[in-house]
Simulated assay, not measured.
Amino acid sequence: MSRLGYPAAAAVFAIGMAGTTLPTPLYGLYREQLGFSELMVTVVFAVYALGVIATLLLAGNVSDEAGRRPVLLAALGFSAASALCFLFEGGLPALFAGRLLSGFAAGLLSGAATVTVLELAPPGRAARAGLAATAANMGGLGCGPLLAGLLAQYAPWPLRLPFLAHLALIAVAALLTWLLPETVTSGVRRFRLRPQGIAVPPQVRGVFAPCALAAFAGFALLGLFTAVAPAFVAETLDVHNLALTGLVVFTVFLASTAGQALMGQVGERRALPGGCFVLVAGLVLVAASLLLASLPLLVAGALCGGLGQGLAFRGAVTAISGAAPAEHRAATVSAFFVVAYLGISLPVVGVGALTLWLGLRDAGLVFSGCVLVLALGVGLHLARRPGSAR
């Protein structure tokens, strides 16, 4: 297992993250079954982000003390509990519980699994392991809707089989995790929840602000596709194939992975402003797809917007990690992720609220315009003052 350590850890990471987006193509079915509004869909989705943020703030570094393997197993346990909530769903409370547990799983995985992949990489393969961790994170998020959409469209039990399949994958991931080498070698293992708060050192704030705003805009796009895109596809574009819906969502995460992988070719200085401008182009395409009711334009928007989000996101993480003093680096990065996950939740709840007054298409246009202005403003600021992202 030592030679396959980091690919196996990446597989565990991907399986865990896939569960967090598994319900995405199914929200329309839940709406029909339970009779709630598009606003409630976005609120159910946003509960996930609250779980992630709470976990990052309370247990972001717990694997440093308790060990990587116990934390990964705990994350898989939360993921399995989430799947069971959806499997035996009996109304909105079960959906809320499932999404909250899913957020706990993602919060634990985002730190512990990333570090495990990097620590298990053989000497000389750190860059490859970093790409594997990125691909596992975004690839897993993209594979969740793809798997659920395919099973819901072409197999029986559309609201049950996706979660049964994921439980089987979690069992495989748990076995892999049990066989992984433990990379934390301290003799005393403790599990303590210590609120970390949000702290940004004064000397980093000039770098932190544009990076965090870029991440907010990029994650808002991801939130739109994972929470509201299925309704756009069905109601605005009149496409009711759940497998196709899952594929549309998959494309935005696939493009994000590609964008993060491209940063080495683009360069750290140009990645963040360039990513913002590509994100702007993606948002223009998303808005055009709503105006013209065009599925190809929506897919193009997903690809372009995801590419920009990935490029800007990796550039932002690199800039913040490099600017923060070593003694405050973990807290600064945690604060950055809190802002990012606020971006994935708050704007889509706003879209859900706007649908009650404007309808789905116009609410999507307002969202696209607001996020476009934010991304464009950050991109122009960084283009004029490139030192602010360094």
Rank of each mutant, 00 (worst) to 15 (best):
L87E: 06
Q309H: 14
P201S: 11
A80R: 04
A46E: 08
Q196G: 12
W357A: 14
R205Q: 14
C276H: 06
A312Y: 02
L84C: 10
F313D: 12
L356H: 11
P296S: 08
T226G: 09
A255H: 09
F216W: 12
V266G: 07
A271W: 08
V266L: 08
A132M: 12
A46V: 11
A112W: 04
F336D: 00
L290Y: 01
L159H: 05
L100W: 01
L254N: 01
G387L: 13
V266I: 14
A288E: 02
T257S: 13
T236A: 11
V47K: 05
E119H: 03
A383M: 14
H328L: 08
L303N: 02
L291P: 00
A133F: 01
G275A: 05
G343R: 10
V339P: 03
A383L: 15
L118C: 12
R192E: 14
P347W: 15
T236H: 04
A215Y: 08
R69W: 09
G308W: 07
R68I: 06
F96M: 11
W157I: 06
R270S: 12
M138C: 07
G308A: 11
E65M: 13
L56E: 01
A136K: 02
I344G: 14
R194V: 15
Y341P: 07
G142Q: 10
Y341F: 14
A126C: 08
G264F: 04
P7D: 10
S294P: 01
A14I: 01
V204H: 03
V41W: 10
F313N: 15
P202T: 08
G51H: 04
L108T: 00
V266N: 09
G267W: 03
C85W: 06
P122F: 15
V233L: 08
G197L: 08
